[in-house]
Write a protein that binds this DNA or RNA. Structure first.
Lengths: 153, 153
DNA sequence: GCTTTCATGTCAGGATTTTGACATGGGGGA
DNA sequence: TCCCCCATGTCAAAATCCTGACATGAAAGC
């Protein structure tokens, strides 16, 4: 490659690829790709899987709740829910008994599907934690939480 | 400093919102939002800014190079480059002298625009690092790199 | 009791990104 | 040399997501 990058020594702070923001993006992109690859074999997308996990732990969450928790808009969240509903993995009452929010719940088939993919997804998380010094995992969790909190305010 | 105790005490491993993958997604989403907000005031998108930074450090990168470095497809990268070219911030030769790759370079206006936004973007990164214990920053950088490497293979 | 305010669900439109495909240029191996 | 393989750029189409907008229901304030 003639037009290759010149191997000039630069200060670490000057190289964008060593900035915190860039590495955050890279790690997230790698995770997204790995999750996509694994979930595709089970016919689920990443937002769909996240929604199933959230509903398993907190039954009755509304579309707006789920949208906030999965970092998408209400409109996108609604598309996800409709897909899961058409696949028979969740149920929503046709009419809201309180307000406009319609609480979503997993069906038996939804729980079964979730149980199937959880093994594969947990294996991906395992690949991450295995690559880290064990003592740093908890510190990493708190650090990421601090970063998010500092930027969300 | 102390986290508020959730009303329903569940095992930490069961709560998705405390998993590494979820926190990674949350931190990245928060960073993306903060960057978008800041860059919008200067008429740039996040991929456009990233491209300018990369070209400042490594002049002559091709579209495919930039696409890989910014974690998008070549097609999306081409759209970004065309936008920057129309804005007069970068230049590309009309024909490739070697192969098909056309090396992109910053114009004077591109360098000036980058210098303007860098202060604002660096302020966002500062908000992140200020929220972290100083000793943990370097460890966090290496951990994120380890995660990405483990998942990219 | 009435109004204001807010959150939710939904629709339409557009912008962005990706998937799939194809042609071209260059390098490496038989 | 010739051929195969890979990388690059680009086009067309589809999928995804967001922005803006509106109507409805509930809660809070007067």
């Amino acid at each position: 490659m003639k037009e290759s990058v010149p191997p000039e020594p630069s200060h670490p702070a000057d190289d964008i690829t060593h900035h915190l923001g860039y590495l955050l993006k890279r790690a997230q992109a790698a995770l997204r790709g790995a999750m996509d690859k694994v979930l595709r074999e089970h016919g689920l997308t990443v937002p769909q899987y996240s929604t199933l996990e959230l509903l398993a732990l907190h039954p009755g969450m509304s579309n707006a709740d789920l949208a906030r928790a999965t970092f998408v808009t209400r409109q996108s969240g609604n598309v996800v829910l409709r897909g899961l509903q058409d696949a028979g993995l969740i149920t929503r009452p046709a009419t809201a008994d309180h307000g406009r929010a319609r609480p979503a719940r997993l069906t038996d088939e939804g729980r079964a599907r979730l149980a199937t993919v959880q093994a594969a997804v947990h294996a991906v998380e395992q690949r991450m934690t295995d690559a880290l010094p064990p003592r740093r995992v908890t510190a990493l969790l708190t650090d990421l939480d601090l970063i998010a909190a500092a930027l969300e305010e």
